[in-house]
Computed example of a mutant assay.
Amino acid sequence: MSEGTMQRRAQREQPERAKRLTRVLVCAAAVPVMLVAAGCSSDSGSDEGGDKGASASASQSASPSPTVRPAAYETLPEACSVLSEKTLDDLAPKAKSGKEGPSDDVSTRGSCSWNSLDNNGVKGSQFRWLNVSLLRFDSDTTRGPGDELAQDYYDKQVRDAQSAEGAKNTESEPVAGTGDEATAVRYDLKKEGTFKQQTVVARVENVVVTVDYNGAGLAGDKTPDADDLMKGAQKAAKEAVASVTEANGTDAASSPSASKSPSASASKASSKD
């Protein structure tokens, strides 16, 4: 190859080498920039995510779990055993035994009723019906404390008794010395004879006791005295409340609720139709 030819080839290759060298240098310079950018982006995302995760975790751990005041009473006595034999002899003398009402859980709900018919032949007969029902409320984080739930039910029971269908001469009054609060409601019902209905609703802590007692003179016998019937109903309510406290290991005589004054919500009312 001639010297001139070699010189021209060298002249052509020199620019090509220069271009390749320039591209290498440009790429080499770009790599650290990309690495730095990638590193910054990665670190920033990691720190931000970590901060958010830590904040969320701290927030969750700082939020207290919902709590509610525990219910005072955890069980109920057997409904048919809450009254003494003497009380049953006085209120339902001809009742052979109590009839237990249905319940899906006897620790929260129970009832018992007694029927008594004293036949006096041509003079007629005296009828008595006595029923005791017990309802206990557990505390619930969504519904509230058991005693407040019992309070709501107590108020409803009183209202229902005061607005009984067909009732005449309705009267209400507070009752002292029976649970935390108690209300007595009386009225007349006309059926085969004049039935004198007495209802006592009492609340002790998270339990509501309802006593229904009515009497009538049938087939010409005289109508029983409403005051006597009310005394019997109040006596039964007081015994039932005592049975509830005793079933939960509390002495009714020393219970703070036993000495409380009548409920302020038990307004005295009477209406005559």
Rank of each mutant, 00 (worst) to 15 (best):
A266V: 04
V68S: 05
G249A: 09
P224Y: 03
A252M: 07
A29W: 02
K196W: 03
Q197P: 01
R128T: 05
E100A: 15
D180R: 06
S61G: 08
L149Q: 15
T5S: 12
C112G: 11
P262W: 04
L25C: 08
Q60A: 15
S113G: 05
Q234Y: 10
A219K: 08
Y153W: 15
G50Y: 10
D212F: 13
A38Y: 00
S97K: 14
Q162T: 05
W114R: 01
D160Y: 10
G232M: 06
D89Y: 04
S61T: 15
R203D: 01
S61H: 12
L76T: 01
D221A: 15
P70M: 05
S270F: 04
G215K: 04
D188K: 12
A92G: 03
A253P: 01
A54E: 13
A18D: 14
S133F: 03
A29V: 14
A79R: 06
L35Y: 02
N214A: 14
V209G: 01
A161W: 01
P77V: 08
A237Q: 12
E192A: 13
G124S: 03
L189D: 03
R8L: 14
S172W: 03
S133G: 09
E48V: 10
S265F: 00
G98M: 04
V36G: 00
A233H: 05
G45A: 14
D105K: 13
T170S: 11
K52M: 14
A182T: 09
R17N: 10
P102N: 07
K86A: 13
A242Y: 02
C80P: 03
V158T: 06
D51I: 09
T210F: 07
K191M: 13
S255C: 09
P70W: 07
T87L: 08
D140W: 13
P224R: 02
P64V: 12
S139F: 10
M230H: 05
L117A: 06
P174R: 00
W114K: 02
C40H: 01
D140T: 14
S111T: 12
A240P: 02
A242M: 06
D228K: 14
T250K: 09
N206S: 09
